[in-house]
């Protein structure tokens, strides 16, 4: 019993080290970083964070990222819920083929679609808008959402639907007030995955934006190349990208374990 916690602690310490090192550097000045290697910083400065929070070129990156991630999550959940319900409850012409086709999009290399995406979204005048990135991320997030939700919905016995209809529920009322509360943990897990994959994706987000909707990840790469290497600032910006994800996972932590187990293959 004791041994397993030693292993777990060792693993946790090891995975925290790179993150801690970034936090460490973000609290020091560039001159201090280059001059010496210290495990616990002695001269702590918040200048790097102040720069990010006061310079709109920096903080707008975070706002842009959050906007398109939230948009993407909403689009995915709203459209995937009925679809997952249909895949779970009805059999219709071509259902298996459509389901498989959806999943293949999860496997499409993003690099394959870069140029066509740029042309397509230019044609619709969507370049440099948040909705463009949100839609592009649907390519891999929607199939995943449908897949996860379908597993959860199939875990709810069909008798519940039938009983509700016999009791005189109309479909929309049944769906919103009876069914959705039943699968709320599934919705939590699906939302977490949408958030996660949209937040971490860079290739589409960078290709489809120039200035107005530029994500923080792209801001970071460009600043690095233009102003030399300001390690402290870079580390601070990197550390801030972890915060939203950490918050989200704290809220869904109880659903996560239960959630995965129900998802089907």
């Amino acid at each position: 019993m004791k041994k397993r916690y030693i292993i777990l602690t060792a693993y946790l310490v090891l995975i925290m080290l790179p993150i801690y090192w970034m936090l460490n550097m973000s609290l020091r000045t560039n001159a201090d970083i280059m001059a010496r290697l210290v495990f616990i910083p002695t001269e702590i400065t918040f200048d790097n964070y102040i720069t990010i929070f006061t310079d709109s070129a920096w903080y707008s990156g975070y706002i842009n990222s959050i906007i398109y991630v939230v948009l993407n999550t909403i689009i995915c959940l709203v459209t995937a819920l009925p679809a997952a319900y249909a895949f779970s409850r009805y059999s219709f012409i071509g259902d298996k083929h459509v389901f498989f086709w959806l999943l293949t999009n999860r496997m499409a290399p993003a690099a394959v679609f870069l140029l066509p995406f740029f042309q397509l979204y230019s044609t619709f005048n969507l370049i440099d808008t948040h909705i463009a990135v949100a839609l592009a991320h649907c390519l891999f997030n929607l199939p995943l959402t449908v897949w996860i939700l379908e597993g959860f919905i199939s875990g709810v016995p069909r008798e519940i639907d039938e009983t509700a209809f016999i009791d005189g529920y109309k479909f929309p009322r049944f769906f919103f007030f009876v069914f959705i509360p039943l699968i709320r943990s599934g919705i939590g897990v699906a939302a977490f995955f949408c958030f996660m994959f949209s937040w971490v994706e860079l290739l589409f987000a960078r290709t489809l934006t120039t200035t107005a909707a530029k994500p923080i990840a792209a801001t970071m790469t460009r600043t690095v190349s233009s102003s030399g290497l300001d390690w402290g600032l870079l580390a601070a910006a990197g550390f801030l990208t972890i915060v939203p994800g950490a918050l989200v996972i704290w809220f869904v932590r109880n659903y996560l374990a239960k959630g995965f187990a129900l998802g089907r293959v």
Binding site: L8, L12, I15, M16, I19, M196, W199, V200, E201, L202, P215, I216, A217, M220, T221, G238, T241, I242, P244, G245, A246, V248, I249, W250, R253, L256, A257
Partner: peptide, 16 residues
């Protein structure tokens, strides 16, 4: 706490 710490690397943008 274990779950959150373990999941942290998953939520960092890939270029970061």
């Amino acid at each position: 706490v274990c779950l959150v710490l373990i999941a942290l690397p998953l939520l960092i943008p890939w270029n970061v």
